[in-house]
């Protein structure tokens, strides 16, 4: 019980922290709004120029919902895990955490989750409601919302594991900025966060399907936008996500263990 309690207090702390920075919050809302406007007009122009209303199985509204929610998701996916690990390592503070009776990976996860919760209620939920009305109910509200919620939680975990893996790389490179930007770009592109995977050419798509990144943005967003999904499809998507959770969790844990041992031997 105390074990749960200490993680809960971590979460509480980071929620408060997330609320304190009101300037950042207002600015990020304005930023999202601007982004919304830009992609709205851009994709509207794109679809207007297209001879058909449906491109690669997606309508203009589908695409909008997909992209806007992807950017709203980004707000709570980005918990600066790579920076946290990199800084802990460079400042030498990491040793203090290692001697604490806490799993470092769990510590980082729960320290960031509060921010995610704040971001969910402050950016994701309002965005979702706005987009629901703006697209005149193109989002179907039904069982798929339940699947979406489950899928979203899976996304957070996979995303965290990828982040943690990349953060561990910082133990070798002394470069946080460089490592982090590469991760952001790879994840952003290959997860379908910037361009929906439906628009990818066949061969490219095949490669992406074998990578964990599509389990981060593409899976939950597909559940929300694809209205032709059957029960088997849901099972398929969620099953894949679970598989990726197991794989990324295992790999990131192993890599971390190995790296820490190496660090202990070489002395930071």
């Amino acid at each position: 019980m105390t074990r749960v309690k200490k993680y809960l207090s971590l979460v509480r702390g980071s929620i408060l922290e997330g609320l304190v920075f009101r300037t950042s919050l207002i600015v990020s809302i304005i930023g999202n709004l601007l982004y919304l406007i830009i992609i709205y007009f851009l994709w509207k122009a794109i679809f207007d120029s297209s001879p058909t209303d449906v491109v690669n199985g997606m309508t203009f509204y589908d695409t909008m919902i997909y992209l806007v929610l992807a950017s709203a998701m980004f707000q709570f996916m980005d918990t600066f895990v790579v920076w946290a690990i990199g800084r802990d390592y460079q400042s030498g503070q990491i040793v203090e955490y290692l001697v604490k009776p806490m799993d470092y990976q769990a510590y980082i996860f729960f320290a960031g989750i509060g921010n995610s919760i704040v971001a969910f209620f402050i950016t994701f939920l309002p965005t979702f409601i706005i987009i629901y009305f703006v697209t005149h109910g193109s989002i179907v509200l039904g069982m798929n919302l339940v699947f979406f919620a489950i899928s979203l939680i899976c996304s957070i975990v996979v995303n965290f594991c990828v982040d943690f893996f990349v953060g561990t790389i910082c133990l070798y490179t002394q470069s946080i900025w460089g490592v982090n930007i590469m991760k952001e770009i790879v994840v952003g592109l290959l997860s379908g966060a910037t361009v929906p995977l439906a628009f990818f050419p066949e061969k490219f798509r095949m490669v992406v399907d074998f990578l964990p990144f599509q389990a981060i943005y593409h899976s939950p967003l597909r559940i929300l936008t694809d209205q032709k999904m059957t029960g088997a499809d849901y099972a398929d998507v969620l099953g894949m996500q679970l598989l990726w959770i197991v794989v990324t969790l295992l790999i990131s844990k192993l890599f971390w263990k190995k790296s820490v041992r190496k660090m202990m031997v070489n002395g930071g």
Binding site: T173, Q174, S175, W177, G178, V179, N180, I181, M182, I185
Partner: peptide
């Protein structure tokens, strides 16, 4: 750091 940032 320099090399990795450049690649990034």
């Amino acid at each position: 750091d320099f090399i990795i940032s450049t690649i990034g």
